[in-house]
């Protein structure tokens, strides 16, 4: 058996003049939950489409479970589950009929798929809704059905492209509970997400920006590698404070978190007291500035910001 579930080498793809993916080298170990994060348009979806054989690379190669994706597309598809951002469910069919349809696509004999289907229905809490038409499902339930359909053939590798987009917190928890259980079934997961709290749940993360893999590591690694430190403060006039902080030397990112402002400052940048003083000098009222606990969200924002400025 192969220890690497996914391996890419110099994987490159352009659309016209837009370079979507530039020389991606990625290794995902068997049984990992690997998160792809990065801003909109970074190349996350392109990576998944290349891995599933839906797109052909301009250069480089990709392997799934040791099989070359271009040369052995059909075999790879059998090993792969793919949940794209817009999953093509058949709207006029019921939940049960959709599952059957996808089982047929993967040529699973009727006798074999029943047990698998029951398992997945109960794990997703959809057992009571097998008779409901797909177009009458809520967003959260629709995503659960899509997940069932992409797992029905017991894939070794599952690609999930922002599966929780537009899904409410309760359904989001349900979906993650299922994802978390997959490595125990020897399923490797590659998941993209725009949310830092979901990225934290992955074993390792790859940060893509502008088609380039900027860094790879555990969520803890990414936080530890942060050279800037976060400060939180309160401001009466948030907009004025934001503008002043964005102009302040040594400040890397400025974000609003709840009712507070959260900034990251470089090592040589100002501390909490100096930030307050600088704001005061600019005529902006602010209080309660203090060092805050570094978070993954800071790290992800900083990486995106740094790359944005370079480009």
């Amino acid at each position: 058996m192969h220890d690497l579930a996914i391996r890419t080498e110099d994987l490159t793809k352009s659309f016209g003049e837009i370079r979507a993916l530039a020389g991606l080298d990625l290794e995902v170990a068997r049984g990992e939950i690997f998160g792809l994060v990065g801003p909109d348009g970074a190349g996350k979806t392109t990576t998944m489409r290349l891995l599933s054989g839906l797109l052909r690379p301009d250069a480089g190669r990709a392997e799934v479970a040791g099989l070359d994706v271009v040369e052995r597309t059909e075999d790879v598809r059998r090993l792969l589950g793919y949940l794209p951002q817009t999953f093509a469910m058949l709207h006029e069919l019921t939940v049960a009929e959709n599952i059957e349809y996808f089982a047929d696509l993967y040529c699973i004999p009727r006798g074999q798929f029943a047990q698998r289907s029951d398992e997945l229905l109960s794990a997703t809490g959809l057992t009571e809704f097998t008779g409901r038409r797909a177009d009458a499902l809520s967003g959260g339930m629709g995503q659960k059905l899509a997940l069932i359909c992409s797992l029905i053939h017991r894939p070794q590798v599952l690609l999930l492209d922002e599966p929780t987009r537009g899904v409410d917190p309760v359904s989001r928890r349900d979906l993650w509970r299922i994802v978390y259980g997959l490595p125990a079934e020897d399923v490797t997961v590659l998941i993209s997400t725009p949310y830092a709290d979901e990225a934290e749940r992955c074993n390792r993360l790859g940060v893509l920006v502008d088609g380039i893999l900027q860094t790879v590591g555990t969520p803890q690694d990414l936080v530890a590698r942060q050279t800037s430190r976060p400060i939180e403060l309160q401001a009466t006039e948030q907009r004025l404070a934001r503008n002043a902080l964005e102009k302040l030397g040594g400040v890397e990112t400025v974000a609003v978190v709840g009712q507070a402002l959260r900034i990251t400052v470089r090592r040589d940048g100002p501390g909490p007291e100096e930030v307050l003083k600088a704001l005061d000098g600019a005529g902006v009222e602010a209080t309660e500035a203090h060092w805050a606990q570094p978070r993954l969200a800071d790290a992800l924002l900083a990486i995106a910001e740094r790359c944005g400025k370079d480009g």
Partner: peptide
Amino acid sequence: EPTSGVDPAVRQQFWNLIGDLAA
């Protein structure tokens, strides 16, 4: 759901604008 499918940096921008409009 204006920020559905929008990345964190752009979400910040959206919400800053919402805050400014409200102000």
